[in-house]
Each structure stands twice: as structure tokens, then as C-alpha cells.
Design a protein around this nucleic acid. Structure first.
Lengths: 344, 344
DNA sequence: ATAATTTAATTAAACGATAAAGCCAAATAG
DNA sequence: CTATTTGGCTTTATCGTTTAATTAAATTAT
């Protein structure tokens, strides 16, 4: 049996101190209208009685929520988990609340969550879109409601939006250049859909590098698909069926690289022995554990922090709205510890 | 320049249809008071105008939030990321919202977040406590406010609470028994604080197994500390300094195992060559990638799902409150793929 | 045919805060 | 010494819903 205490409200405090509830409200917020002595009295009593403001009432009344909505396609992947943590940390430091929702790579869920967050009257929305997002009307809607919008890492193809991304094109270019300089000629790219920046740009980087070094692109070795393990798995099987295997693969994400790994393992093909793989992703985890893949590292900490910072700036300067774009550099991490590992 | 549309409210719809706003409110919620024909009209207009209910007003008025607060110590770790995803999925299916907060293993943050969530008037709180949580008064407070409380995986030492955990003791016992049967005698346990169930129980399982097989416990090989990579790193260094090294280590978490790995690597000690490690954690990620550790697997999917289920049951049956405890089984995964990997 | 019930709506009163305006006495200005 | 400002509160209105209490008409029961 739980005895349920009624939460204490402003009015209760007001009665006990024989002042109006507005005085209490102002005192608790440190408003200069209220004298030092009463402010102290109010705060002391509030503390004593364990007063907790009713956030809903406060937000309703003040017409702002101090809350930023965050919509991501996945949680249970290193890259997103790290980004989310960074966003939460940055928000905490700036006294903002985060409401996180997860679309699970499904556009309808994304849409539903965005509506839900708008219903909560969030001050802004940080979004990393799903692989299947093509209907962009929802984003127009967000903006038309005066809710700030910052895209994080995954950005839809539309004008006048703010975003924090990495330089995908250069990242991909570097990864391919590395491979070419190492002497590989049979190079594949298991890539992402082109309706989304990371799919498009990574492919472009791949193509530019191939073109620069005059390596012919073999169309069977270039795929366009989703970002999950399953997608990588299937893509590799497709390539395998055709017979001729590449020596090097640039995978669009870490889960895709995992899928490739699994598919290859099933066929008795060794990674990185027979095929070397580089993928985009965060290298901040497990950084000392020997890796089977090279990484085009994306600083999740920086991505998350910058997105929050940009968002708060935009919230605080509602009138001069200029879409901002921040593009962070990537860094190629080679899994050279592989040799060490085998030597152990 | 953004033209800011004023959100549409009940009253706007009411005026257009020449009915009262309560009629609109009821119609939208499918209340039987309202006739079929007006209900249809209202819904059509709401859809047309893109009406979005103001959640804060709704929650304030109805005195419930349909929201469950989730407090976890970390996001950017496989185990928690997976749990969080499971909780979100289960909540989504049951039409509940989740508000996630992250304590970063710090008790003061945890406390602050809990207060914040109470301020939001969540219907219930699912909590996985930090490694340093010792002041349990905040949990009493939660309960005294009639807010449901379910602990997930990490549970404080207090009576009459609900929880969803795994059988840590048996899990640890099994991991040690495995080691003993394999012939190891020099067995270490880099463990967690005993004020928290997972620290205490895993240690108990370790001790019971050692005792059953009459293997003496060497006190230098048993530590009690936090759950992070750093803790594992430091603990191993402590052991290393003393000179005599174990052949097998049971690590209390995956990050701790990683820390041990790193510390060992620095000293030129090979994992699993020189020392075999088993840790608690989820094995659902990267499951085909050869692992350096064995796992006492905890089904994160099941943990998250059950916690949400239990929570919703308790919310829906406010009167007959009985603390419930669900204890899930673990499974030992041996990294036997290690040999394969080296052969490749 | 009248009373009792049901249907479909309306009006009034919260919910717990904040914002805007108003008030009065004390302090300062001219 | 009067006029104006300031300090410190209070009063009133509002935020956008829902819940509870009413009402009027239509239906059913007796």
C-alpha cells in the first residue's frame, strides 16, 4: 500500500507564508520584484516541503518548454549511441532537456515522433533522418511552426536548412585513395541510398577518387542500399553470386561492414585477409581492441555538441534566422593493429 | 525569415464548426457523447487544418502524462544502448512515451534527473542506478508521490521494490565453474561495488563456485570498484603491480573487461592468450565477429521489454500494489571462435 | 399521455503555473 | 513641498486542455 502524497503547489506555499502565489512563483525564480528576505523565506519553505514545480503548467503558461527533441534512426549502434550521449551531455550543460525518440529507420515512425514532439511544443528539433525518408513535407511543417530544425549527420536534400555533418565526400575519397595507394585495383563500394546525403556524398567521394586515379568502376561492385547489417549482408551476397570478388570494400556504415563480414565468413572468405574493409563510423569505442575494419572516423562528440550549440543559438536568436551548416573533418584510422594481433 | 503559424487549437476548430470546444475535444478522443456524424466532421477538419493537441495542456488538465521516465547510467555502451532501444520499442507498442535521462554514473545527476522527471509528472520511473548511488531517500520520495518505480538490472538494496534483473549469482557461478572445469586455478574477479546488486551478487556467485570446488580465493585478485573501462584498467594495474597474475578473470562488466584488456596490452600480456576473460554483458551485437572475451549474456531485449510491461501493469492497477521481481536467466557464451580467428 | 431515460450537446470549473497590469507606501527628484 | 520614481506586492487574465455538472431535445417505458 502506498500512501500517495498530493504534490505541493505554489498555492500551498503561498498560504503558509501569507503571500500571493505569484510572489512565490517569482521568488522561486529569483525575480527582482521580490525582496531578499521573502525570497529566502520562500526558498527555505519550498525546500522544506519538497516543492517541485509542475513543468507542464509552467511550460503551458510560459509558452516554452526548454526542451529539444531528438530524433534518431537507431540507438543500439555505437555511432548513434555516442551521438546521443554527446547531445545529452551538451544539453545538460546548457540546462536544456532532451526528449529522445527513435525512428528505427522507418519514415512513418519518424513522422509520428516529430508530430508528437511538436505536440509537446519543443523549442527545437535535432534530427538524423531515416534511410527511407523521402517525403520532406513534415520538415516544412516543423519550420512553419517556428520550431528550430537542425539536421545531424543525416540530412535530407532540401534548401535552407541547418545541419551538422562530416565531410563525407572527403572521407570517402581518402579511404579510396588509401586503398589505391596500397595497390588495390579491385575496389567496391557498398553504399547508401542517394536520397540521403551520406549515401550520395560517400558515393561521390568514392567516384572522384576512382576517377582521379583512373581506376575503372565496376558497376557490380557498387551498390546502393540501406545502412543496416542486413543490407551489408545482402549486398555482399549479391556480389558474391556474380563470381568476381573485390579486394577492398568501402562500406557506408559500420553495421553494413558487419553484415559484409558475416556474409563473407559464411563463404569462408577472411576479413581482412582476403578482403580489406573500411567503413564510416565512430572509432571512439573499443579503440584499443584490434579491429577488423578501418574506420573513417566521425567525431560523435563533436557532432552532438555542435548540433546542440547551433540549436540553442537559433532558439535564442529567433529573428535573424540564417540556415547554418557545419561540416566536420573525418580521419582515416587504419586497423594496423591487425598484424600485431595475429602476432600475439 | 520564417513565417510562424500560430498552432491551431480546439477553439479554432470549435468556431469553424459552430460547436463548443468540449465537443471538439471529445470528438477527437472518440468519446461516445458525440454523435457519429459530428465526430467525423471534427476529425476531418482537424486533419485538414493539421491540428496538433497541446500535450502540456492535455497532461495538465488530465493529471496524467502517459509518459515513463527512464534513468540510466550510460548510453554509449552496448548493454545500455540495447536496453534503451528495447524499452523504447516496448513503450512505442503500448502507446507510451519515454523520457530518457542519463546519469553518467553520477548520483547527483541521477537525483537531479529523477526530480526533473517527477516535475514532469511521469506516470512511472524505470531506473538503473549509478555505481555510486547510496542515498536511497530519493526513491522513497518517488514512491511517496505515487509514482511507480521499477528498477532495471541495477537495483539498490532496499525492501519492497519492483525489479527486472538477471540471475547474476548463477551467471557468475557458471562463468567460474566453466573456468575451473577448464583447469584454471588462478582465478580473479574484478568486481563491482557491493552496495549495488550486480556487484554483490556477481561476487557471491564467484565465491560460491570457488568454494564449491575448493579453490582458494586470493584476496589480491578480488577487487571491488566501478563499472567503467577506467576501473578495469586501474584494477588490472593494481594486480599487475603485485607481481602474480591470474590465468582467468571474471570482469563485472564489458567496459571493465575492455579496461583490463587495454592495461594488459600495455604490459605485453595477451588476451585471451595469457589470460582468459569473461564478462557480463550483452552478446547481441557483433555476434559474428570473433570476440576476445567470453560473455555472460544478459538479454537486453527481454530486460527492457519486461520492465516496460511490469511498469504498465502497475500503472494500470494503482490499488493492488505488490512489489514484483522478475529474474531472467543468463547464458554463458564462450569465445571459441578465437581459435578460428587465429587460424584465418 | 406522462414520466423516466438516453442522446448529444453546452457551460462552468478546474489543472498549476506565468505574464501583464495595478496598487500603495517609501524614497528620490526638482 | 509636491511630483515622480522605485520597491515589493497583489490582482486579474491567460495558457489549451479535460472533467464535471447542466441542459434541452428525443426516445423509451409505463
Amino acid at each position: 500500500m502506498v500512501k500517495k502524497t498530493q504534490p505541493i503547489k505554489l498555492e500551498d506555499l503561498a498560504k503558509q507564508l501569507n503571500v500571493s502565489k505569484v510572489t512565490i512563483s517569482k521568488a522561486l525564480r529569483g525575480h527582482p520584484d521580490i525582496s531578499y528576505s521573502t525570497t529566502e523565506k520562500v526558498k527555505a519553505l519550498a525546500e522544506e516541503l519538497g516543492y517541485m514545480p509542475n513543468i507542464m503548467a509552467r511550460n503551458l503558461s510560459s509558452r516554452r518548454s526548454n526542451t529539444i527533441g531528438l530524433v534518431v534512426p537507431k540507438i543500439a549502434h555505437v555511432f548513434f549511441a555516442s551521438i546521443i550521449e554527446a547531445v545529452y551531455d551538451a544539453a545538460f550543460e546548457n540546462n536544456y532537456e532532451i526528449v529522445l525518440t527513435v525512428s528505427q529507420e522507418q519514415a512513418y515512425r519518424e513522422r509520428k515522433h516529430i508530430l508528437s514532439l511538436l505536440s509537446m511544443r519543443v523549442d527545437g528539433l535535432i534530427i538524423s533522418i531515416t534511410e527511407e525518408t523521402t517525403d520532406l513535407s513534415i520538415f516544412e511543417k516543423v519550420m512553419s511552426h517556428g520550431v528550430r530544425l537542425v539536421f545531424l549527420d543525416r540530412v535530407p536534400n532540401m534548401p535552407n536548412i541547418s545541419s551538422v555533418t562530416v565531410n563525407d565526400r572527403v572521407g570517402a575519397f581518402t579511404a579510396i585513395e588509401y586503398a589505391i595507394k596500397k595497390g588495390y585495383k579491385k575496389i567496391a563500394h557498398i553504399g547508401g541510398y542517394h536520397n540521403i546525403n551520406i549515401g550520395r556524398e560517400r558515393f561521390q567521394g568514392f567516384r572522384e577518387a576512382m576517377s582521379k586515379y583512373k581506376i575503372p568502376i565496376k558497376s557490380e561492385w557498387v551498390t546502393e542500399g540501406g545502412f543496416s547489417e542486413e543490407d551489408g549482408y545482402n549486398a555482399f551476397h549479391e556480389i558474391y553470386k556474380k563470381g568476381d570478388l573485390p579486394e577492398y570494400i568501402l562500406a557506408v556504415t559500420y553495421p553494413v561492414a558487419l553484415g559484409i563480414y558475416n556474409a563473407a565468413a559464411e563463404k569462408g572468405i577472411s576479413i581482412p585477409g582476403d578482403i580489406e574493409i573500411t567503413c564510416f563510423g565512430s572509432n571512439t569505442f573499443n579503440k584499443n581492441i584490434p579491429s577488423f575494419f578501418n574506420f573513417v572516423n566521425q567525431s560523435t562528440k563533436e557532432l552532438g555538441t555542435q548540433a546542440v550549440k547551433m540549436m540553442i543559438e537559433q532558439i535564442n536568436n529567433p529573428k535573424d534566422f540564417n540556415p547554418q551548416k557545419i561540416v566536420l573533418d573525418t580521419e582515416l584510422f587504419i586497423a594496423d593493429n591487425l598484424s600485431q594481433r595475429i602476432a600475439l
